[in-house]
Each structure stands twice: as structure tokens, then as C-alpha cells.
Design a binder for these strands. Structure first.
Length: 468
RNA sequence: UCCUCAGUAGCUCAGCGGUAGAGCGAUCGACUGUUAAUCGAUUGGUCGCAAGUUCGAAUCUUGCCUGGGGAGCCA
């Protein structure tokens, strides 16, 4: 494709700073075309903003009639023209086209995206095209802004971004179904004398999986660099069919040496406030759109997150609140059992009406690496419960005492030998440390108000779903 | 995995024992700057799949598949 002169501009920039009489070139896709007798309007979008650029096509353009036939919804075009103040309401500027090139045609009869509202269910069946819609476009711009803000937040605070492995040999938490990875011929598996699968012949010489968390490796790196974070894909093979679960999702996991649970909660709160501020500042148009069309509490919620402190309650106190609640729960409230979705929702949405941090959970329901409190009954774990979303962050102070950690691994029926390197961290210069994990897609859901997690990731993976 | 609701035109749905409908889209035409333009016409379907009940099934029954919502598990 020849380089237009002057070189092409992004539509967001034109709409923001363009001046009348300026000659510009734009490249993008046709959102809609309105033909009138004397001229035609074409709306062009290049993904840089929610708003389109309105282009006026005059019949004096060369081969005007043929051109109009080719400019159908979905077609890609390159247009050079002069910016003019729009005589009609709806936009400050529009473009009077002087040169139009149809780069790629689009057959209006078969193009699946129509000039009308589509259901998200339908858009999921055309995931390769849905990013061209207003809503998904806004979601992915917000997703990008949030990703960038995450790096800014940690980098500004001196955290090092560390790349933890995606392939792993250990199920680090002893929980959660994992997806296996193998180079063995599944139709002709090698067997040992005892009839078991002979993983000795597999690529790594032992069973391998996709990671369910980078936490243990992040702890390794924190023991050298003090403050680190991971931000990458993680995988779960759980048969979860809900609007809040994916088989492949992105997780943010900071890990801080010389830090306790209070420092961990402080970081989680500062983190969420930072991300919300950054997204409101960078994507005001998209956030307005979500507030107007998806969930009219999005903006109030965001300001509430930024301006007000999070509520912090111990698990024990939370149980007391739930026991006194003037309401019937489907699941019983009892000290020692995990909080159910309905309990978490009551706390965050009805009782406190703000993000709520529940901490000091019973030792029996939490993972082995969480640090035992002095009461002998609880561990220094915390969950951040977001109104409307539920658990968005889960974190803890880690058990740094070798003896205690070894006992906990044994108590959960895990093989201590598998954790030799993890235990080594407690042998050589062990320090109190803490961290948390945040499901990135849940954060994007929380930001945008989108109801289904499959609509906040471009290519969702879920049970029986990997078509795009 | 469990509970529940649904699958009819490209999309969103109505029809719920007598042989298929609407709106939108698309196409064509009209139209003094339109904003998901408007107006008119045209186009459009193995009624998710399989078996069964019946003179007759989109409609009733059973099984399966797919999707939504909720739950469990979790992030």
C-alpha cells in the first residue's frame, strides 16, 4: 500500500486536536454509510476511539457511483481529505474527502455485524469480528489502559517485573485441576512394566502442566529483588461454567519481602485506587459509554473506590456480622467454613457498600503457605471482595518459618521433597514476606460493568470453548 | 459438575397439535446535512439433532448437543 501524503493520522487524534482546513489522511473500517441524493456520509473507525470520523463524499469524486457501491459496512478504506467544521450537530469536525481508496471490500449481504444492537452471546460466535463493535472496542481499550497502569503502578514503586514460567512440573498450591502438557503420542502411550504411563519418555522426563499461579516462583525472585510482580497468563482445568471463570486468564501477582499482611492490604488498596484513577483519566469516553449503556453504577463505583477507604474486617468479625444479619442465607454461617458467594455479596454490597477486605481466615480452609497467626487458629490471609464481582484479590503473608512450613506441607498430605527449593528459601536468609493475586479479567469486569468474563478477553478459553 | 431457562429467517423474538409470522438487517428505489437517518418495495426458514406419540408435530414425550442465568470451585 502506498504511503499517503500527508501520512495518515489516528482518528482519536484528529477529533481531539484537528483544525479546520487541515488536510489529513485516515485509514480505518466503515461503520455505516448514509446515502442522500446529493452526497453521502460515511463513518470511519480505526479503533483509536469510540467516536467515528464522519466523512462527506461528494458526487464530483472520480467514479463516485462505483465507489459508493464498494463502501459497505465493514470495508477498509484509506481517505485523504480536508477537515471542516461540521455544519450539523453531532460532531465538531468532519472530513470532506478528496481521495478515497477502498483497501478491502466487504459484502454487506454476508457481513455479520449489522447496524443494530447485537447480543453478547451472538458476538461471542464471531469473536474475530466483535472487536469492531462499540462495546467490545471500549472493553479492549480499557483493558489496555488497565494493563499499562498496572506496570506503571509497580514500576513507580520500584517493583521488578519478573517472568515466571508457564510450563511447570508441580501443582504449587496442591489445589485446582491442571492442564497437562505432553509431546507423547496420545494414541500410542508408552507404558512402564506396571502398566502406568511412562513419563520418562515424555519431553521433560516427568509430567508437566500449564501453571496455575506464578506465586512460588515470584517468592523466589522476591528473596533476591525484594519487591517483584508477575503479570501473565495462568490456566485452570476446572469445569467451571460461570460468568466469572476462564480456563486461561491473566493474573497479577506482587510479592514483597520484609512485609506483613497489613502492608499487603495497603498495597492491594493503593493498587486498585491507582488503576481506577488511571482508567478514568485515560478512557473517559469509554467509561461514560459503559455507565450509559452497560451498568449505570460504573462511574459512581469507580469514584467510590478512588475516594473512600476500603473496609477491613477479620473473618471472625465478618462471621458475627453475618450471624446478626436480618436475612436468611442458603448456606449456614459458621466459624471455620469458607464464606459463600452470598455471604461475600452481603458484606460488600449490602452491609459495607464498598470494597471489603476480609482477613485472618481459619487455618483449616486455606493453603499451606499462608502464615499461621499466634492464636493457632487462623492464618494471615486476606480476600478483597468487590461489590458486584465478588472475590477479586486473594493474598496472604507467607509462612517464613521452616519448621512451621514443613509441618503444614505434611499436614496437607503433600510431599515435602517436591518443595525442596521452596523450603530452601526458608533455610537461607528467610524473611517475612507477603503478596496477592488479582484476576485481571475480573478487574476489567469490575471497571467496565461487563457481566460475563468472556466479553473482557479477546479470545476466551473455557470448557468446550476454544474456537478463536 | 449440579439447578434452572432457552434453541423458529442474517440478528432479536412471537407462534405452543391443523402444515411459518413480525421488527430490525440486507438488496433496490425515493429523499434539501444525515447521526443505529427517514419513507416505500423486495428478499428471506430441513422451526438445534435423533427417536417416539398422533390421521397430522415448530407445538406433546424421551435422549443427546449447544447457549444463557444461578450454584459449587476459585482469581
Amino acid at each position: 500500500m502506498s504511503n499517503p501524503s500527508p501520512s495518515s493520522s489516528r482518528i482519536a487524534e484528529i477529533l481531539r486536536a484537528g483544525q479546520p482546513d487541515e488536510t489529513v489522511a485516515v485509514c480505518g473500517w466503515v461503520r455505516t454509510k448514509r446515502e442522500l441524493k446529493k452526497f453521502a456520509f460515511v463513518e470511519i473507525n480505526d479503533g483509536s476511539s469510540m467516536a467515528n470520523l464522519q466523512v462527506v463524499l461528494d458526487p464530483e469524486l472520480p467514479s463516485y457511483t462505483d465507489l459508493l457501491k464498494q463502501i459497505q459496512t465493514g470495508a477498509s478504506v484509506e481517505i485523504v481529505g480536508q477537515l471542516v467544521e461540521s455544519p450539523a450537530k453531532g460532531q465538531r469536525l468532519e472530513m470532506k474527502a478528496s481521495n478515497v481508496t477502498v483497501v478491502g471490500e466487504s459484502d454487506g449481504e454476508t457481513y455479520p455485524l449489522q447496524k443494530k444492537r447485537h447480543s453478547f452471546e451472538f458476538l461471542r460466535t464471531i469473536a474475530h469480528l466483535r472487536s469492531r463493535t462499540n462495546t467490545l472496542g471500549a472493553v479492549f481499550r480499557v483493558r489496555n489502559a488497565a494493563s499499562n497502569a498496572i506496570h506503571e503502578f509497580f514500576q513507580e514503586r520500584g517493583f521488578m517485573w519478573v517472568h515466571t514460567p508457564i510450563l511447570t512440573a508441580s501443582d504449587c498450591e496442591g489445589a485446582g485441576e491442571m492442564l497437562g502438557v505432553t509431546s507423547l503420542d496420545l494414541a500410542n502411550l508408552p507404558k512402564t512394566d506396571k502398566g502406568a504411563i511412562d513419563y520418562g519418555q515424555d519431553f521433560f522426563g516427568k509430567p508437566a502442566y500449564l501453571t496455575v499461579s506464578g506465586q512460588l516462583e515470584a517468592e523466589v525472585m522476591a528473596m533476591a529483588f525484594s519487591n517483584v510482580y508477575t503479570f501473565g497468563p495462568t490456566f485452570r482445568a476446572e469445569n467451571s461454567n460461570t460468568s466469572r471463570h476462564l480456563a486461561e486468564f491473566w493474573m497479577v501477582e506482587p510479592e514483597m519481602a520484609f512485609c506483613d499482611l497489613v502492608g499487603d492490604m495497603d498495597l492491594a488498596e493503593a493498587f486498585l485506587k491507582y488503576i481506577f484513577s488511571a482508567v478514568l483519566e485515560q478512557c473517559p469516553e469509554d467509561m461514560e459509554f459503559f455507565n450509559k449503556r452497560i451498568d449505570d453504577t460504573v462511574l459512581d463505583r469507580a469514584r467510590n473506590i478512588i475516594d473512600s477507604g476500603f473496609e477491613r474486617v477479620t473473618y471472625t468479625k465478618a462471621i458475627e456480622i453475618l450471624e446478626k444479619a436480618d436475612r436468611k442465607f442458603e448456606y449456614p454461617v459458621e466459624w471455620g467454613t469458607d464464606l459463600q458467594s452470598e455471604h461475600e455479596r452481603y458484606l460488600a454490597e449490602e452491609f459495607f457498600k464498598k470494597p471489603t477486605v476480609v482477613y485472618d481466615y481459619p487455618i483449616g480452609i486455606k493453603a499451606f503457605y499462608m502464615r499461621a497467626n499466634d492464636d493457632g487458629k487462623t492464618v494471615a490471609a486476606m480476600d478483597v471482595l468487590a461489590p458486584g464481582i465478588g472475590e477479586i484479590i486473594g493474598g496472604s503473608q507467607r509462612e517464613e518459618r521452616l519448621d512451621d512450613l514443613t509441618k503444614r506441607i505434611e499436614a496437607q498430605g503433600l510431599d515435602v521433597a517436591d518443595y525442596w527449593w521452596y523450603l530452601d528459601l526458608r533455610r537461607y536468609g528467610s524473611v517475612p514476606h507477603a503478596g496477592f493475586g488479582l484476576g485481571f479479567e475480573r478487574l476489567v469486569q469490575f471497571l467496565t460493568g461487563m457481566g460475563n468474563i468472556r466479553d473482557v478477553i479477546p479470545f476466551p478459553r473455557a470448557p468446550l470453548s476454544i474456537d478463536f
